[in-house]
Design a protein around this nucleic acid. Sequence first.
DNA 1: CGGCTTTACCGA
DNA 2: TCGGTAAAGCCG
Length: 362
Amino acid sequence: MLRSARFLNGFLSGTVCSAVAFYFYNRADFKETSSDGQTKIQTKETYLSEVVTLDLETAKQLKGTDILKYGTPDRGSDARLYYNHVLCYDQAKKIPVWVAELITKSDLTGPANRQHSKFKMDPTLDEFFSSHNKDFLGSGWSRGHMAPAGNNKFSQQAMDETFYLTNIVPQDISNNAGFWNKLEIYVRDLTNRFSEVRVISGPLTLPTVKEGSKQFVNYEVIGNNSVTVPTHLFKVVTAENPQQPDSPIAVGAFIVPNQPIQGSAQLTQYQVKLEDLEKTAGVYFLPRLPPSKRVDLCSVDSCQLISQEALELYFIGRKLENAKTVERVDSVWKDLERRHLIPDDYLIDLYKKKRESLSTEP
DNA sequence: CGGCTTTACCGA
DNA sequence: TCGGTAAAGCCG
């Protein structure tokens, strides 16, 4: 449904007010299931009914003047829809607020190839508020996907859309290729044990500088468009098997510093309580999922990232597959030996076959 | 898988 | 000759 409904962008932005009321209503709804008292619920519902009826027309009549004569100040759509992701974009910071995906196993295989994709401005975003490729080039920061290209192997169009700069944040390149890459691989691997995996990813600018008891937010901006360099990145992961009735929803929240991270680091080091992330991000990430239905992801699954050695062996496998000369194959293999990596039988076989085909073919 | 840099090429 | 794009090559 969402995947072919890009035209709904305009529709959504036109109904933001009712969407807000809708979320309020649902939050009040499951407060009921928590330990909150009845009085508080009534108060919230009373407040809600006022919010719902106070539309712009009513407000205009009460006030007698048209405050918003020249339009409602526009900070952009709450949800921009693409073939395989949904995002909220921050027109001030020039990076997304959050990017949501649903990943199933079938998404992870197919003909799409990132070599055919290019980073470019989102054609559905006003260029006035967009980051540009020039802002990143030479800045020292890489262009990091929030919705990863690798989650869209099933469709070149879906993959191409993840290269829109609305989905990109300035990211430390070592973090991007290393720890963050491992996290993305782990999330993909969840589809082997859960039929539906949902991920919400995004940037944070957290207070880092302290003088005495005072806290300050301090972050770099790059390029002519002053694109925000986030201090941290977050992921909220939900994993479930909805075909099993009444099965719990596994939920994990993680905050990762936007800097190089040691190869031996564990994912659980960066796990946080979802509520803590929500408070600092200013976002309810799962407003329709009652806390009573949640279980800790890292309690029902391993949250074990692949090892640094396994990751580097994987890189070497990809390089061997892409090699176009015998010299390149030998160079890659020599690098493996120099780093004392232990190839498995598959990799050894790949090396032999690749070397043979390249030395006889041309 | 995640990226960047270099080279080749082309039209103004 | 410059600036932009595409393809190839490289690295973690």
